[in-house]
Write a protein that binds this DNA or RNA. Structure first.
Length: 659
RNA sequence: GCUGCUGUAGCUCAGAGGUAGAGCACUCCCUUGGUAAGGGAGAGGUCGAGAGUUCAAUUCUCUCCAGCAGCACCA
């Protein structure tokens, strides 16, 4: 038998017979390690304790102390345990796949009856039984024909399909614990008893398409979360509770920012408080854009289908547009005039995006190369008929306003404009409190227009630009638009959901379709490139993220209600109004609270309402012409003179770009 | 759009085949109180919409609308 050399993390090497398993290696070290072992790292690969090692390698034995490996195995094997529990309770259930997710796992089932929330408790109990049974996990490598036949005979059509999908040459691993069987590539724990019975929880049932394909059957997905121990599970559940408290939909109601209602699904009714945030942010963006070399424009919202046909949107996105039909023969008639005259019905669409309109602005008058790059910006109100299931508070809506702009430029200007934009965006994200964001670079998709050389050039320009500004990014091959590559900029919400905000896209296609041109230095007509870009993305989504990021406690300059001046006794009312007036004169959003309530009550109410500063005034303050300052989240108060507090708060109310 | 769940007062929620209840918020009164809920009284609901079953439906059934979770989608 050939000998191999295994090197341990401490650098020592030992000889073993080829084909030795990590379990045997662990046993050769100590009995306790053998018991505690859960898996191994073999040359960096996560290795089942039962898999043979046939060549020299670096080896490390994993125990529950190795967090990544432990979580991977716990979540993975719990998926199997759950599938077994489900099949034991409802034997007619077909199993499919059950991968590990960020905090746990899910398993998709095919069963005629829906699982109810009450079923979850039963499944959990059964899972605990399986864990307590300490069933040994064993795996075997089978050939394809045998595995296929096995699943056909056992009535598991999804497993048959999975076997067929396993690439040629890869091992087909059959997995058992107890009598229960699954198909799985592993690695696995030694036995189910290594699973923590008190550190997992089933979180819910939902639908999911088989292989994510709308045309395939919808399966039932049961999700679970799992950790190494009970404390970690508790911590996670606590985190979810905290995250729910900062949900922008909840805070939007509590802070009286906006509401939504049935008659206008996916559209926002902004209340005074919310609209204050919106306009403050918009004013800020307007200044930033002006400083950044953009020209602000505004274009129509109801536009004839002809333009959408020309731009290509009618073909591709008609079902996602709000179509507005107008019978123009009724122009000037009463509302009760007859039925629609089809021949004179004009079909329009609410604009789902601003680019075609921006090309119309560009196309007015002859443009010279001297005009380029021409940056046209618009706070463009768009409407998209998003699928009902996609709607989510103000994060994903049907009516929204983009901080959109299109840069018309030459091919040679793309890289410079891209670098310039990333700097522009990073500066704004930083000022708005998001120093961290993620960039994804999406390259040419399978279905695309344009030559390979053109794609090479443009992708190169974008990549160079990111590198020039020294930003990290992740590559998303094949994820670009059909007309060009793009950079997308992502922020994360309170519960870790990632939202696309900014974007930067290169488009040589639309100028062609809408016949945009400029005159170059030699007097020839040339096609400009068009760069689509948005910084915040949509005001709606960005404000949603701001609310969640700050748990409603917005930075002072963005807070809709910045200061409440609260009277402790009604004898201070006049002075309260004087203080409010002094603050307002300096541009601070201040209001008086002279209600017949105790100061405790007022402090509580405005704290709950996330007002950053409460100024309390009573007899003392009136006499001394001071105020007592209480900042949100602080118990300490501070007595300050009226003049000082006005000056200080006026400074804090100044947007970051004007300080 | 798909699967499942949900829809009762402004908000959070209880309730039952015999036409509704709590707390907070709101209005009024008492209280002028020094930093996270002072006391009392009052007002407030076509029980998401429509149809069906029933002597009787907010409750049961169906359809629709909206919301929530996930999937799919996101120019």
């Amino acid at each position: 038998m050939a000998q191999i050399s295994l090197t341990f993390p401490d650098g020592n090497a030992r000889e073993f017979e080829a084909g030795v398993t990590p379990a045997e290696v662990a046993a050769s070290i100590s009995k306790s390690l053998s018991k505690k072992a859960i898996s191994a790292q073999v040359d960096g690969a996560h290795w089942d304790l039962a898999w043979p090692i046939t060549a020299d390698a670096q080896i490390a034995i994993n125990t529950m102390q190795d967090e990544d490996a432990a979580l991977e195995l716990i979540r993975h094997d719990l998926a199997h345990v759950m599938a077994r529990a489900v099949q034991e309770i409802w034997p007619d259930t077909k199993v499919t796949i059950g991968p590990v997710t960020e905090n746990g796992w899910f398993y998709d089932f095919d069963r005629a009856e829906p699982f109810t929330p009450e079923d979850l408790g039963q499944i959990e109990a059964k899972m605990k039984d399986i864990i307590n049974a300490r069933d040994e996990v064993r795996t075997e490598v089978w050939d394809r024909a045998r595995a296929r036949k096995f699943y056909e005979d056992s009535g598991e059509p999804y497993k048959v399909e999975l076997v067929d999908r396993i690439p040629e040459g890869a091992d087909i691993r059959m997995y058992w614990h107890g009598d229960w069987q699954d198909l799985c590539r592993g690695p696995h724990l030694q036995h189910t008893g290594q699973l923590p019975a008190d550190a997992f929880k089933l979180m819910g049932v939902s639908g999911a398409y088989w292989f994510g394909d709308v045309k395939r059957p919808m399966l039932q997905r049961i999700q679970g979360v799992a950790f190494r121990n009970r404390d970690d599970l508790k911590k996670y559940l606590n985190f979810l509770e905290e995250a729910a408290k900062r949900d922008h939909r909840k805070l939007g109601r509590e802070m009286d920012l906006f509401h939504m209602q049935e008659e206008a699904p996916g559209q926002v009714f902004w209340h005074p408080n919310g609209w204050t945030i919106y306009t403050t942010l918009q004013d800020y963006m307007r200044r930033k854009q002006r400083a950044g070399g953009y020209n602000e424009i505004n274009t129509p919202q109801v536009v004839d289908r002809k333009l959408w046909e020309a731009s290509g949107h009618w073909d591709k996105y008609q079902h996602h547009m709000f179509i507005v039909e107008v019978d123009e023969s009724r122009d000037g008639e009463d509302d009760d005039a007859g039925v629609k005259n089809k021949d004179q019905t004009r079909i329009n669409a609410l604009k789902p995006m601003n680019c075609p309109c921006h090309v119309q602005v560009f196309n007015q008058g002859l443009k010279s190369y001297r005009d380029l790059p021409l940056r046209l910006a618009e706070f463009g109100s768009c409407a998209r008929f998003e699928p009902s299931g996609a709607l989510h508070g103000i994060m994903r809506v049907r009516g929204f306003t983009q901080d959109d702009a299109h840069i018309f430029c030459t091919e040679a200007q793309i890289q410079e404009e891209c670098a310039r934009f990333i700097d522009f965006l990073a500066d704004i994200y930083r000022e708005l409190g998001f120093p961290e964001f993620e960039i994804k670079f999406a390259t040419r998709p399978e279905k695309r227009v344009g030559t390979e050389e053109a794609w090479d050039y443009v992708e190169g320009a974008l990549e160079n630009a990111i590198k020039a500004v020294g930003r990290d990014y992740t590559l998303e091959p094949g994820d670009g638009a059909f007309y060009g590559p793009k950079l997308d900029f992502y922020l994360t919400d309170a519960i870790g959901r990632v939202w696309q905000c900014g974007t930067f896209q290169v488009d040589p296609n639309l100028p062609e379709r809408l016949d945009a041109s400029y005159v170059d230095a030699s007097g020839e007509r040339k096609r400009p490139f068009m760069l689509h870009r948005a910084t915040l993305g949509s005001f709606e989504r960005f404000i949603g993220i701001l609310i969640e990021e700050h748990a409603g406690k917005l930075p002072f300059w963005l807070a809709p209600r910045q200061v409440v001046v609260a009277a402790i006794t009604s004898e201070a009312d006049d002075y309260v109004h004087e203080v409010v007036a002094a603050l307002k004169a300096q541009g601070v959003r201040a209001e008086a609270d002279v209600r017949n309530e105790k100061i405790n009550y007022k402090v509580r109410e405005h704290s709950v309402g996330k007002v950053p500063v409460i100024l309390a005034v009573g007899h003392r303050e009136v006499e001394e012409r001071t105020v007592t300052v209480r900042r949100l989240g602080e118990k300490q108060t501070q007595v300050v003179t009226l003049d000082d507090v006005v000056g200080q708060l006026a400074l804090e109310a100044t947007p970051p770009d004007l300080r």
